[in-house]
Amino acid sequence: MTDKPLISVRNLSVHFPLSGSFFGPKLFVRAVDHVSIDIAPGTFFGLVGESGSGKTTLGRALLKAVPLTSGSVRYSDNGVDYDLKDISKAELKEYRKRCQLIFQDPYAALSPRMTVRDIIAEPLEVMKLTSSRKETDERVREIATKCRLNLEHLRRFPHAFSGGQRQRISIARALVCKPRFLVADECVAALDVSIQADILNLLNSLQKEMGLTFLFISHDLSVVAHTCDHVAVMYLGQIVEIAPTKKLFAKTRHPYTKALLSAIPHLDPDAEKTAIKLEGEIPSPINPPSGCKFHTRCPHVQDRCKVEAPEWREIDDDHFVACHFSEELNL
């Protein structure tokens, strides 16, 4: 990447302690384990993986919504820099004006007792970004128009809206404080395909218009393929592959990514069945496998994988992978 990254994550780990037995060894859930990523400004950065792989925890770590165990997360935007590991409370407040989260379930994310106007205005009031009610109303109306909400609907309550409209309200609320960086955590997973396309198009046009940067978390590879510029694939708390979207989908270099891609049901009923069947399920992050964490399910596993953790390396221009045998495997 030539641009200076907006978000730079180095060796980040997030471990949650478990209340094990008093005398036994202390147990940790290794939700995120030694992750390094760079997110360039003005891009959609996709994060995919199965449930339990740590996608959401990584997304929250970038907003400092979970405590960071080790490593660093840096934000730098036109001379404004924050280091999230040792950020002060006052600085964190400033940081949160710049970074917002869009939630998965638009039915649970909106308070049923507030009108749409109040929901969208709440961040402005909490962060004291506006000085008068008139100014707040103006900002609300401006962002509502951008998110293609009907201004007459601002006085209504969320129950009157469909899933797609609610998600647009959620997006408006996240954008009202004019953030620079957004974490969209499975923001279309709860929507029908016909509505999903609409929300993805909206995010795309907002990104161009407002120059936003997205961390787009999803379990759906086809959605990520269509939306994102870069994709990172996560497995059991670690990133196993990062590449520009086109490169990743043209030639993946990690067996896990390959398996994920081949498991997507193809729309053609007569498509050749080349799905690589992964045996079993994702192991527990409390006691992850030794060596390469994917070795228990990998169809190409060799003895070396079981003992030695693969190095994180650049296999091709801007294409990173963690696998011993990327060159030899013809995926």
Binding site: G164, V193, A225, H226, F249, I264
Partner: peptide, 24 residues
């Protein structure tokens, strides 16, 4: 046709997504 067009196509990443206008 609308349902099928709204689906992201993995073989053609650049193709625009076409939502069905309006809500149910």
């Amino acid at each position: 046709k609308g349902l099928l067009n709204a689906l992201p196509d993995l073989d053609d990443l650049g193709a625009p997504l076409t939502p069905i206008s309006g809500d149910i």
